[in-house]
């Protein structure tokens, strides 16, 4: 039994991990097929697991309604909308022109666009609250941010037209900050991340890091 509980998952991770690495270097049709199937399998497993997720969501709100926790009426709304969406989706399909699409276009889309647009408000408040020149490092970050902000708007273009361009390549300061020091730092972060990712993958594949498995 212990084999199925512990060794089998670890073995599966090892075989699949190494298998998929080797697959990358083999160009045969079979190898392409393997990659395609593994991706498909992950998608199918995720689709099945979604049912568990949805059950979890519905159970949370069912408990709220049953125990009449504060705001339980909102949970009823959640239920109604969810059920409506599922029924419409399965009954009439999800193509253009169906009620499902209508709900998507006029309810989900404005909600997501509006929530996304909250970022602009929060960026402004964060800029005011946290952009303080407390240390030298913070000052450099602040200055870089201001230069880029000026540089990206037409106002900055007007400004730079009046600046002397005695140093070549500096007529677009904002662009330079991005393309040169900014890109260098990001590149190094990415290089570090890839090393970290590879090391983590290796630890997972070799079964050294197994905390994701839990215990019995």
């Amino acid at each position: 039994m212990d084999f199925f509980k512990r060794q089998l998952p670890t073995l599966l991770v090892l075989v699949l991990g190494l298998g998929m690495i080797i697959q990358y270097y083999i160009p045969t049709t079979f190898s392409q097929q393997v990659l395609k199937n593994v991706n498909l399998w992950i998608q199918i497993i995720a689709a099945f697991t979604l049912c568990i997720g949805i059950t979890s969501l519905l159970r949370t709100h069912y408990t709220k309604i049953r125990l009449q926790h504060s705001g339980w009426a909102y949970s009823i709304i959640l239920y109604i909308v969810f059920i409506a969406m599922v029924i419409l989706g399965f009954y009439r399909g999800i193509q253009e022109g169906t009620p499902f699409r209508w709900l998507f276009d006029y309810v989900q889309t404005p909600l997501s666009s509006t929530t996304f647009s909250l970022t602009a408000f929060f960026i402004c408040s964060a800029a005011y609250r946290a952009f303080r020149a407390r240390t030298m490092e913070a000052t450099i970050m602040l200055i870089a941010a201001i230069i880029v902000m000026i540089g990206r708007i037409p106002f900055g273009d007007m400004l730079s037209a009046y600046l002397p361009s005695f140093i070549p390549g500096f007529n677009d300061m904002a662009g330079w900050i991005f393309n040169t020091p900014g890109m260098a730092a990001r590149r190094a972060i990415l290089l570090g991340i890839s090393l970290g990712g590879i090391a983590t993958s290796l630890r997972i594949i070799l079964g050294i890091e197994r905390s994701y498995q839990g215990k019995d």
Binding site: P9, L12, V13, Q23, S194, S201, Y212, G214
Partner: peptide, 27 residues
């Protein structure tokens, strides 16, 4: 615990696919 088997599948495949692609695209 049975669910560990499909989870292991997803994690193993994900880790394996990512390594050579990370080396190629970033390193």
């Amino acid at each position: 615990w049975v669910s560990r088997i499909p989870i292991a599948f997803v994690i193993g495949a994900g880790a394996g696919i990512s390594v050579p692609n990370t080396v190629q695209a970033y390193l």
